[in-house]
Simulated assay, not measured.
Amino acid sequence: MLAQLQTAVGLIYPPACLCCGGAVDAHAGLCGPCWGDTVFVGGVICDSCGIPLPGGDTGEVAHCDSCLAHPPPWVRGRSALLYAKMGRKMVLALKHGDRQEVAKPAAVWMARSLGGKLPADTLIAPVPLHWQRLVKRRYNQSGLLGRALALETGLDWCPDLLQRVRKTASLEGKTRHERFEILENAICAHPKRQHLMQGRPVLIVDDVMTSGATLFAAARACIDAGAGQIRVVTLARAAKDT
């Protein structure tokens, strides 16, 4: 019965590419050309922020100059895609285009980027939106990614572990220093949820990392609330900090 239902749905709504809408073999997939334009993060990367690094041996623990100069408050950071070409298109489709179906395959890619190196008691927490922005957008794209990642990994998650207590200006076009200033004290632990992370490792999920200012604020909020080691993962990573 289930197989027949799936076949009927497939006939009515044939699988389409997540990016261009072209025909694909299965739902939540990419066509050949779009797959070719999707740059997955690989090779030598910074262990802290996930940005690709030149040279070196794959598998070595390396750090970029930025993370060496300003170590982040988390122990490891990873991203699945570069924020370019189709990676950028998918992030924007998820964030502003109501393409919520992007979250499921994104979670598969994000889980692969983590390499299974997570404690079994890790709690997944999405970067929060301010309530006014959430009302306008109707959903938190980081929450969709967090939920899908929890289903993919079997880890626990808490959609409102963190709160954005202050509405912040857009970070687009801002310098690294300005981004960190804007996000200072903008995120805190939910007072009714912070007991869930006492001494417990937390994986913070967001759609894209640029300077890391938003993830830094979220990580500090978890640490201040008594969490254990913090890790971060995003769907995409901007090639350069700005």
Rank of each mutant, 00 (worst) to 15 (best):
M1C: 06
A3C: 08
A3N: 13
A3W: 10
Q4I: 11
L11V: 06
L11D: 06
A16N: 03
C17H: 08
G21H: 07
V24S: 01
A26E: 13
H27K: 11
C31M: 01
P33T: 05
W35G: 12
G36H: 12
V39K: 05
V41G: 11
G42K: 12
D47N: 09
S48V: 00
C49M: 08
G50T: 00
L53K: 10
G56F: 05
D57E: 11
G59A: 04
V61G: 05
D65G: 09
S66C: 05
G77E: 06
R78P: 03
R78D: 04
L82Q: 09
Y83G: 04
K85P: 00
R88G: 13
A93Q: 10
L94D: 08
K95R: 03
K95N: 03
R99D: 14
Q100I: 14
K104I: 08
A106R: 01
A107T: 05
W109T: 12
W109H: 14
W109A: 15
M110H: 04
R112N: 10
R112M: 09
G116L: 06
K117L: 11
L118M: 14
P119D: 10
A120C: 07
D121T: 06
T122P: 02
A125L: 13
V127F: 01
P128R: 03
L129P: 01
H130G: 03
L134W: 07
Y139C: 01
Y139T: 00
S142G: 07
L144M: 07
G146I: 02
A148C: 09
A150S: 14
L151F: 07
G154P: 06
L155H: 13
L155D: 02
D156Q: 14
C158Y: 01
D160L: 04
T168S: 10
K174N: 10
R176A: 13
H177A: 14
R179Q: 15
R179G: 08
F180L: 15
F180N: 04
E181R: 13
E184F: 11
I187M: 07
I187P: 01
H190W: 01
P191Y: 09
M197R: 02
Q198K: 13
R200E: 04
V202R: 00
L203Q: 07
V205P: 02
D207L: 01
M209G: 01
S211W: 00
S211V: 02
T214R: 01
F216V: 08
A218C: 09
A218P: 02
A218V: 05
R220A: 05
C222H: 07
A227H: 07
G228T: 09
I230T: 11
I230Y: 08
V232G: 02
T234V: 13
A238V: 13
A239K: 08
K240Y: 13
